[in-house]
Design a protein around this nucleic acid. Structure first.
Length: 248
DNA sequence: AACGAAATCAACCGCACCGGC
DNA sequence: CGCCGGTGCGGTTGATTTCGT
């Protein structure tokens, strides 16, 4: 009541600077603490989000590259809407960014499909024989489409099953999944290595790293042991960051 | 140039998990 | 062993920007 109101909405440059400063001092873990001591009238959550999605020095900005797009599509079809996990496979990209990209991507795709399959009718969208569940999502008939990221398992129900799922992954090798996918999706799985080569020498996500922070061992984009073993074709293109305790 | 629609981005919300006490 | 606070994740919303007419 007597307390200053918690700020919401867009961050100002000043707030950003303040946050960066305090994260530099105290690390990017104790968000509630940072929120308090920084004097920003923000919640810890809000601070964390701002840092993770916008201020983190390792963030790659700008358009998704073709191979990133490809990877998102592939991983989404494997894991469903596990955005944070997918994001770990894309150094410099955040779960939020990928989530947004996916929504955009699927909306486009749904519309294209709608157009190409049935230009005159709108009830064509849910073909049960569709290999890509997400493709079958109808586009809403209002400005805001009713879009459900349906690919993969039901993520809400899944949350309590993370452990189980991780265990499952140990037994269900991705090689198998990849083989299956390759059969299903030959048309979309590009020779990723070629795409990646296309980035040439210019592509270096490390080169965008701010020199201010030495965050190499504490990047957002790290994988746990199991993930790092996964034989995804892209993984060996990226060095695997390992998360570790941080001392500032 | 103006306007509306569509796309994109940033941020919030609610829920679940985890670790400390 | 249960409670509680902090953190992380996925879903959703609203503001802004871009595009098409």
């Amino acid at each position: 009541m007597g307390q200053e109101e918690i700020r919401k909405g867009p961050w100002t440059e000043q707030e950003d600077l303040q946050l960066v400063c305090f994260v530099g001092l105290f690390g990017d873990r104790r968000w509630d603490f940072i929120a308090k001591v920084s004097g920003l009238n923000r919640t810890g959550k809000s601070c964390r989000l701002r840092w993770v999605n916008y201020l983190h020095p390792g963030l790659k900005r700008g358009k998704m590259t073709p191979h990133e797009e490809q990877l998102v599509i592939e991983l989404q079809s494997q894991w469903g809407n596990r955005w944070s996990r997918i994001a770990r496979r894309l150094p410099g990209r955040t779960d939020n960014e990928i989530k947004n990209y996916w929504r955009t991507h699927m909306r486009k795709k749904a519309q294209e499909r709608k157009r190409s399959i049935s230009p005159s009718s709108s009830n064509c969208s849910s073909s049960s024989s569709n290999n890509h569940p997400v493709d079958s999502q109808p586009v809403g008939n209002t400005g805001k489409d009713i879009f459900h990221d349906a690919g993969g398992p039901n993520t809400t129900a899944m949350r309590g099953q993370k452990r189980v799922e991780e265990e499952e992954e140990k037994h269900c090798t991705l090689e198998q999944i990849w083989k299956d996918m390759a059969l299903l999706d030959e048309d979309i799985i590009l020779p990723i290595n070629d795409v990646y080569k296309g980035q040439g020498d210019n592509f270096s996500y490390l080169s965008i790293v701010s020199p201010i922070w030495d965050y190499g061992s504490d990047a957002l984009w790290c994988m746990n042991e199991e993930e790092s073993k996964m034989p995804l074709p892209m993984c060996d293109q990226f060095p695997c960051f390992q998360e570790s305790g941080r001392e500032y």
